[in-house]
Write a protein that binds this DNA or RNA. Structure first.
Length: 847
RNA sequence: GCCGAAGUGGCGGAACUGGCAGACGCGCCGGACUCAAAAUCCGGUGGGGCUCACCCCCCGUGUGGGUUCGAUUCCCACCUUCGGCACCA
């Protein structure tokens, strides 16, 4: 039973800031009016009325609900989108779901539900969350990568790559995660463990599909120059991942057998110091070398044990060097010396040629091996050029540069120069050539799991691997009853799916049952947005060329290598096939920092998750959006503070009360605004602050995305408005000024807090703020009339003087000297030097 | 080990191209309003010293040096934290 007091309280709360109410109101309007839908350029190819800007945030993986990292990501994108919209650009701002993938499948295994059903529930949920955040998305372009209308085209691209010989199948030692029961790409192995579950990956020899990304290694490096504002660290990470090294390929002939084995070396200058030769245990010639000899059995045992070793053990850098002699020798082409061939597991089959010339004097690993096997260490590069130290006495390999010794007629040359000369000589003798090697491996795309796009290939006993004809796409993912991983895809158990006829000869055949890595799905989604309902082709070239490339891409730095490199690769392939006219998908990239809580990354397993929904409910989406950007510089990691959000909540309440009071006590602004030329006192000072704030907020958003400082500038303006409010409301000119201030505050705040912006803008007597032009700072008001001049003695602040902005250097110096406080320090001393920085300070150097 | 980023009050952070260190916010302290509380509004808040009415002085941006009239900012060396790579020939 309410008592009488509640009536009064009710009427007071009527006009209290009520985010739930106004947010629902504007979300409804934006949805019904499709306020952020943008049309494609029409079929005649007429240019759109304004320049376009493609603002894109990385699409979410729909695992349950959005977390704070998503909120930060989508809010940042939204601020930019709304800001650019209001600055006259045609903003393209779509959204979708990276909906295939393991988590949904694992959840399905646990609960028995279908992954598709779980995914549908999650995408619906996330769609609602995004609406509740008020992001300005063109929802007419929404897509999910697990829809057949989408993955039909993912399969189509697989076929295109197959046609170009960029998709191929080979038997290879691959990374197997026993827990996820699938193979992984190299990029998905983190320190020998699965990126998803950290289980140690095992080597397995399997026939798998690869995309030939190595064919694009050089262009992926070269085209960094086409990228405008990518973070340096992302480029560095990709550069390291690609791992380009220049050197030489040198061919060694095996004695007695008719075999040539090439090696790759970055140190051709040390060729005269090669005292043994190594093959990776997996090298294809190992068996041929030892066949029928006394070395066959021990070598075979060694190879077998190397194959068994977990990837992590094998790659530990400080492991004891082991190996096995093959009984064979190669001839060193530069001096015709015979040197023994060993096998050792520190030589990797995947890098270079899987064989190396070993130079123990100048390579630490080879040095350790030589000491273990009692092999000669022969220095060929000497520091400073003095006579050689004996190899027997060296304690470690000498890896620096120096002067050549023990190297025939190359002696005395600087080693780098000698390297070039030796390579040239090898080249003229057809024994070697300049070569470049990359660390990058081809992209393994097969996955032995259910919830992904089926690889559109049919195996026929007569015809081999045959592509599914384009007209038969999509190859639909069949329903199955059991998703449990068994080391092969669950769809392999579905005979109806597997058994088919060969498209080439019509004979009995079976389908490929592996699905594609989900990074394939996300390597082209940004193109599909441009033409999402096209059922004739993945996208129309002209339309894609119009919207692409993405002008601003925003996402987490964890995708620095994986997604961002795959998407670049895909775009280059499409460019080469003539499907698009640009070579890089993302001109500008911004990588946001992570949000920590209680000293660690938020994660369900640690139980330190801050739920965005709860905060939207308690404070409103605008408050959450504002706080998440106010927390700190967006590119840095920041710690979530529970009480911090109260500050932005209070601030929005202050804005609400200020603007409503202004609406109540002043009239709408006249068409023709006074120029305030004669204005003085609080009116002039607040007007100046307003223009300076406008300039700062504009620069902060458009420049380096310094949202935190933009917001604090608006806070300062609101603080000053509160202090001047009573005075200004007392006269007519003041009323106009405070009304201008209120409108500017709302206009500047709007990209951050769009619901509050829309509501207050309406109350101020206007319409649709998201279409209003962005406020412009007036030059005349940017300069303050006077400023505080700092006066220093020997670099220490001793006084501050109020001086006119127009004061000359001489006037500033005179004012400084005239200061009573300053005289204390100059008395009896000599002013040796005067440094005058107009606008800032005067520094007197005294002795 | 190599490469990259970062170290500023009790906390998140600010300081443009070398020019007032600590904007803005949190927290805390005080005042106003209130019977009271919440909310709100106003003020204070780096440390130390002093003849502590708010005048003044000293110290202070991870550590130690350097350049400069002047350094959070530039240079050298080092420490710590985080991220990437790591037997890649």
């Amino acid at each position: 039973m309410p008592h009488w007091g509640s009536v009064a309280i009710m009427s007071l709360t009527m006009d209290r800031y009520n985010p739930a109410e106004i947010e629902a109101k504007w979300q409804q309007i934006w949805k019904e009016q499709e306020s952020f839908t943008v049309p494609n350029p029409d079929d005649r190819g007429e240019a759109a009325p304004a320049a376009k800007s493609y603002v894109l945030e990385m699409l979410p993986y729909p695992s349950g609900t959005l977390h704070m990292g998503h909120v930060k990501n989508y809010t940042m994108g939204d601020v930019l989108a709304r800001f650019r919209m209001r600055n006259g650009l045609t903003v393209f701002h779509p959204m979708g779901y990276d909906a295939f993938g393991l988590p949904a499948e694992n959840a399905a295994i646990k609960t028995g539900a279908h992954p598709e059903e779980l995914t549908r529930i999650n995408t619906t949920n996330i769609n609602q969350q995004l609406h509740r955040l008020g992001v300005s998305i063109d929802w007419s372009r929404e897509l999910a990568t697990c829809d057949p209308e989408y993955y039909k085209w993912t399969q189509y691209f697989f076929l295109k790559l197959f046609e170009q010989k960029l998709a191929y199948r080979k038997e290879a030692a691959v990374n197997w995660c026993p827990s996820c029961a699938t193979v992984l790409a190299n990029e998905q192995v983190i320190q020998g463990g699965c990126e998803r579950c950290s289980t140690a990956v095992e080597p397995r020899s399997l026939a798998q599909w690869f995309f030939k990304i190595t064919a694009y290694a050089e262009r992926l490096l070269q085209d960094f120059k086409l990228l405008k504002s990518w973070p340096e660290r992302v480029i560095t990470m990709q550069r390291n991942w690609i791992g380009r090294s220049e050197g030489a390929e040198v061919v060694f002939r095996v004695e007695e057998l008719d075999l040539d084995i090439p090696v790759f070396t970055t140190r051709p200058d040390t060729l005269f110091g090669a005292t043994f030769f190594l093959l990776a245990p997996e090298h294809e010639l190992v068996q041929a070398l030892v066949d029928g000899t006394e070395f066959e059995n021990p070598v075979r045992d060694y190879v077998a044990s190397a194959r068994m070793k977990p990837v992590l053990d094998r790659s530990a850098p400080d492991r004891e060097k082991t190996g096995e002699f093959t009984g064979r020798y190669v001839i060193n082409p530069v001096n015709n010396e015979r040197i023994p061939i060993y096998i050792s597991d520190y030589v990797l089959m995947e890098y270079g040629t899987g064989a190396i010339m070993a130079v123990p004097a100048h390579d630490q690993r080879d040095f350790e091996f030589a000491r273990n096997f009692d092999i000669e260490v022969r220095p060929v590069v000497a520091a400073g050029g003095q006579a050689e130290a004996g190899g027997e006495t060296m304690a470690a390999a000498f890896e620096e540069d120096g002067i050549m010794i023990n190297s025939g007629h190359f002696d005395g040359m600087p080693n780098r120069e000698a390297g070039r000369a030796i390579t040239e000589w090898l080249n003229s003798e057809h024994l070697g050539r300049v070569a470049v090697s990359y660390r990058l491996r081809d992209w393994l795309v097969s996955r032995q799991r259910y919830w992904g796009a089926p690889i559109p290939i049919i195996y026929c006993d007569n015809c081999g691997a045959v592509p599914v004809p384009e007209d038969d796409l999509p190859v639909l993912l069949p329903k199955v009853n059991d998703y449990a991983p068994k080391g092969r895809s669950p769809i392999a158990a579905n005979e109806e799916f597997v058994n088919t006829t060969c498209p080439a000869c019509g004979g009995a055949a079976s389908r490929e049952t592996d699905t594609m890595d989900t990074f394939v799905d996300s390597s082209w989604y940004f193109l599909r947005y441009t033409d999402p309902h096209n059922d004739k082709e993945p996208f129309n070239k002209r339309i894609a060329n119009y919207w692409m490339p993405v002008d601003q891409y925003i996402g987490g730095v964890e995708h620095a290598i994986l997604h961002l490199m795959y998407a670049r690769f895909f775009t280059k392939v499409l460019f080469d096939m003539g499907m698009v006219d640009f070579e890089e998908p993302f001109t500008n990239l911004f990588t946001q920092g992570m949000i920590y809580y209680k000293g660690a990354k938020m994660s369900k397993s640690k139980g330190n998750v801050v739920n965005p929904d709860e905060h939207v409910e308690r404070y409103g989406a605008d408050t959450l959006r504002l706080y998440i950007l106010f927390m700190g510089p967006p590119e840095l990691d920041v710690e979530w503070q529970d009480q911090g959000i109260d500050g932005t909540s209070r601030f929005l309440g202050r804005v609400w009360r200020l603007v409503n009071e202004v609406v109540e006590k002043t009239k709408p602004l006249p068409e023709e605004r006074p120029d305030f030329d004669g204005a003085a006192g609080p009116a002039a000072s607040l007007l100046g602050k307003t223009h300076r704030t406008t300039a700062k907020v504009t620069a902060d958003i458009s420049g380096r995305f310094r949202f935190n400082t933009a917001i604090s500038a608006i806070m300062e303006l609101v603080n000053e408005a509160y202090l001047a409010k009573e005075t200004l409301l007392a006269d007519e000119e003041g009323k106009i000024v405070i009304r201008i201030v209120a409108e500017t505050v709302v206009a500047l705040l709007d990209p951050f807090t769009p619901h509050l912006g829309a509501e207050l803008w309406q109350r101020l007597g206007h319409k649709c703020i998201w279409r209003e032009p962005w406020p412009q700072a007036d030059e005349r008001w940017l300069q303050e009339e006077t400023y505080e001049l700092v006066v220093q003695i020997n670099g220490k602040v001793r006084d501050r003087l109020q001086v006119p902005s127009s004061a000359s250097q001489e006037e500033l110096a005179a004012a400084a000297r005239a200061s009573g406080r300053i005289s204390r320090y100059t008395e009896g001393k000599q002013v040796v030097k005067e440094i005058i920085v107009p606008g800032r300070l005067v520094n007197l150097v005294v002795k």
